[in-house]
Amino acid sequence: MLIVTNLHAGYGLSEVLEGASLNVKAGTVVALIGANGAGKTTTMRAISGLITPTRGEVLLDGKPVQGLGAAKVARLGLAHSPEGRKVFAPLSAEDNLLLGAFPWLPRFFGFRKKAAPDLERVYGLFPKLAERRLQLAGTLSGGEQQMLAIGRALMARPKVMLLDEPSMGLAPVIVQEVFRTIERLKAEGMTMLLVEQFARAALEVADYAYVMERGRIAVEGTPAELSRDERVLAAYLG
């Protein structure tokens, strides 16, 4: 569903990604783990088009999408829930969700009605958001904002979801809740690429995993394989 080949990207003159390749098959959850600064977030940003890759290819459902720009890639079915959540602070929670569905909703009128079933689904997944639907997103707690960010990505009816550090800065209880949600989405057949600091938790939910080091994929394998790899064990699962 998402095939990344030899991706190079960076900021200005400094190259952060030096040829990352990965493959996310339909209906699977793939984890991308690694130390801070290894290039995980840059990989995500280069895939979704927030930064333009200098080299390499990104295939979304068989179509090359590199260099198209984030808005077009999003309209082609890739939903990226970015690091730091990036909810629209001055808009209500529900408006945030509606904007997640921007690619397929009518632009002027009747969008609320058309989005109703999808809103129901997200509120079913996150009942807290239903309670807070009219509250400004900037005033929600960190956990609620994370749920909003995931819900907003779901509203796009994406083919692939990229989740960047969904557990960042959250209390342990909330982290568990986030991972339960990821498991539930997986059970529903959602294809996901997950970047996580909590390598152990990520490997529990993932079907396959990549370990990044200095802008490259250093090790890859199933979670079981990686758990037996001594280097991975020492560096990330210690």
């Binding site: 808005a71 077009k72 990036k86 808009l91 408006d95 921007f102 002027f108 796009a156």
Partner: peptide, 25 residues
């Protein structure tokens, strides 16, 4: 009241996040 108008506000609030929703900045 319109989705396009909300998109306008969204891009004002966070240009990158707006792009990720498929809204062309």
């Amino acid at each position: 009241r319109t989705l396009l108008g909300k998109a306008f506000e969204a891009v004002s609030a966070d240009r990158d996040a707006g792009e990720l929703m498929g809204i062309s900045a």
